[in-house]
Design a protein around this nucleic acid. Structure first.
Length: 352
DNA sequence: CAGTGCTGCCACGGGCTTGT
DNA sequence: ACAAGCCCGTGGCAGCACTG
């Protein structure tokens, strides 16, 4: 089966004597790429057939009618390779800054010397402009920012040879690629979505035309599911930690509440004692305070003791005239006041 | 009849080669 | 060095046969 072999009929091979790209043409191509990217005609770094068709149409109208998809693919390949080399070299290096005016990376001479000492091939970028670097960064930087996954097979092979990585354990050594789809919100776990495992995220070409039939660098379903389970596991662990923490906090709150109850009970006991003491003080004050008994008090007492006329008025007058005897009588317990009154009046000669 | 598995086709990205 | 061609591996889609 002739997989992937482009035939002259469908690729419109331009021939080796055609098309020399210049800055202006590159700019038009990159503009078209950016436009298609904005339209969403790019999935996981792969351009859809519709994107290529649109770009061919656009460039044929601006550059010339002989432009083919193959021209675009080849030029993209060249531009991407140049960009990748510069990007991988400089973007993570300290001491270098991109100068959009000179279109070069700026650095102190000693910084350049140090870099060139370690990487002699980097010397070319000291004088060579990196045209369209800003646009290329927007278009291709994400492709370069996905760890080992983003590297070419050649680069990875070299890395394995260099690092002597055991391929059986490579999965563990590989930085997990997080697909840039909304389903992977950091704070919201969603169950495995097998439909989204397809490279186009389940989308179909709305135009009904043949779309990009997928890309090489798609992760397979197993990887996505494992990634999902990894995230599910992390989410469960997070929830478990939260529950554990919640239980701990609850326990502490319970202990605090118990201590507050104990304190409150002690406060109540103290208040009750204070009330008791206050009552006693009131009693003492009442007992020690010189009480004044009025004439009406004397009259009420006589009525209470059922003292009748003709003795009532005599006893009333006698007690009202003798403050000492009056207080003496009221000092006797109520149930003995009758007897005390008879004794007191007999001594005074009022009763016979 | 719906679900599943197989097969062929097509298209992609990328490595390598060749011609200018 | 650059542009283009050739080739490969990968993966989605459609069609078909089979199965429960």
């Amino acid at each position: 089966m002739p997989k992937g072999k482009t035939t002259p009929s469908d690729s419109n091979h331009p021939g080796r004597d055609s098309l020399q790209w210049n800055d202006e043409m590159d700019q038009m191509l990159l503009n078209a790429l950016g436009e298609e990217a904005n339209k969403g005609n790019r999935h996981d770094g792969a351009w859809t057939t519709q994107a290529y068709n649109n770009m061919v149409e656009a460039l044929r109208s601006t550059i010339g009618p002989n432009i083919t998809k193959n021209h675009i693919k080849n030029r993209m390949k060249t531009l991407k390779n140049h960009f990748a080399e510069a990007y991988d070299l400089f973007h993570s290096l300290s001491g270098f800054s991109w100068n959009s005016i000179t279109r070069k990376f700026d650095a102190e001479d000693d910084v350049w010397e140090e870099l060139i000492k370690g990487k002699p091939h980097a010397a070319r970028w000291r004088k060579m402009q990196i045209k369209h670097y800003d646009i290329l960064t927007e278009l291709f930087a994400t492709d370069r920012a996905k760890g080992n996954v983003a590297k070419t097979a050649k680069e990875r092979r070299k890395q394995w040879e260099k690092e002597n990585i055991d391929l059986n354990n490579y999965f563990e050594d590989t930085e997990m690629y997080v697909p840039n789809v909304g389903m992977f919100d950091e704070n919201q776990f969603s169950p495995p979505n097998f439909e989204d495992a397809s490279p186009q995220n389940g989308q179909t070409n709305p135009s009904g035309l043949n779309t990009s039939r997928g890309t090489k660098r798609k992760r397979n379903v197993v990887e996505l599911v494992e990634d999902q389970y990894e995230r599910m596991n992390e989410s469960i662990m997070t929830i478990a930690e939260a529950l554990k923490e919640g239980n701990s906090v609850s326990k502490e709150l319970h202990q605090v509440a118990e201590r507050q109850v104990e304190v409150a009970e002690r406060q109540v006991a103290v208040i009750e004692k204070q009330v008791e003491i206050a009552e006693k003080q009131v009693t003492v004050i009442q007992q020690t305070r010189p009480r004044h008994y009025s004439e009406s008090d004397v009259w009420d007492l006589l009525e209470e003791l059922r003292v009748t006329d003709p003795f009532r008025m005599k006893v009333y007058n006698h007690l009202c005239d003798n403050e000492h005897k009056k207080r003496k009588l009221f000092g006797v317990p109520p149930h003995m006041r009758g007897e005390a009154l008879i004794q007191m009046m007999t001594d005074a000669g009022i009763f016979c």
